[in-house]
Design a protein around this nucleic acid. Sequence first.
DNA 1: TTGCATATATCTATCTTAAGGTAGACGAGT
DNA 2: ACTCGTCTACCTTAAGATAGATATATGCAA
Lengths: 181, 181
Amino acid sequence: MKTAEKLLDAAELRMRRGGYNSVSFRDLASDVNIKSASVHYHFPTKEAMTISLVERYSARIFEQLDLRSNKAERPEDRLAAFSAVYEAALKHDGAVCLCVMLGSELPGLPQDLQAVVKKFFEANIEWVAKALPSGLSTAEKRRRASTYVAAHQGAMLMAVAVEDYRVLGGLGKTLVPSMLR
Amino acid sequence: MKTAEKLLDAAELRMRRGGYNSVSFRDLASDVNIKSASVHYHFPTKEAMTISLVERYSARIFEQLDLRSNKAERPEDRLAAFSAVYEAALKHDGAVCLCVMLGSELPGLPQDLQAVVKKFFEANIEWVAKALPSGLSTAEKRRRASTYVAAHQGAMLMAVAVEDYRVLGGLGKTLVPSMLR
DNA sequence: TTGCATATATCTATCTTAAGGTAGACGAGT
DNA sequence: ACTCGTCTACCTTAAGATAGATATATGCAA
């Protein structure tokens, strides 16, 4: 596998566990058995690397959302697909969504990075809003979608904090009815 | 006001904006017009200071929860009080809950600090669980309470990220019915 | 085929900045 | 005299970043 990809893998894992400031080029370098200075060959700065990382992560999430929902027609099935994607990510990697970490640190992050993180959240809200019943107004859809996304982000955070992954699992059951009502 | 309190105020604001790693003794010192070495007179280490901070913060939150709910008997009113406390905190300070920040960085924090942050989350879940209708089983109460707390934590995060505080405002309306059903 | 040139990917060595923390002096109030 | 709160000066560690040397593989021309 290419070194750049390996670096992104290492960075993703670390960042999803400890956030932007917990990741150092030295750690990443030792993860892939090179020296920290060599990391700059692949990514000029830490900000640039993280932007690449968010973009790769975002693409993967939306790919999976499409995959899991392409046969789902009913709103409740599409919402369930959304939950499933994040539940799978949490369980598979034992770490929260990358943008939960970056979102919480947002004001302290470099400008351009802030922008791509915000874009990720907006895209999530839009995806969920589109999944909601067509009878609702645009504003109401957006309100509910924000709630739904927020609940998932928060649930991942709590699940790791209290070490109980069921927090995320219980979400759909509890939340979906209020989304469709 | 005492210097120690002023330091905690400064630390709280900074930590709620940027997390544990974004706070330095030098910044805090300059916030209250002393030198960074003097901070160690009031708090021996950064970890100790942050533990004090979380304890002060936790006490304040639960004080306000009791205050806003002492006349509330019905579950929906007590849940509304919970939402109101965090909405007020978000709007007043323009920053998320302290433990959203610390919770997201949890694995990278010093051990003793981790413990008090977890305790805060547990206490929140318990408070909400107690507010739920008495007809529900203990397990079901806990599941719903976790969801409710998680949704609020996530909503604060998203509200700041997408710069739209209504994300938190809309929570109660959307969520409370599913809590009581 | 030989031989030089270029691109790729890494290295060593070093710089600068900032962090948490410590030791010990100093001055003001009791 | 003693305590409180602050100071100056310093230590150690780690971070992001840069410069320039080095090795290897690829491509191309004589």
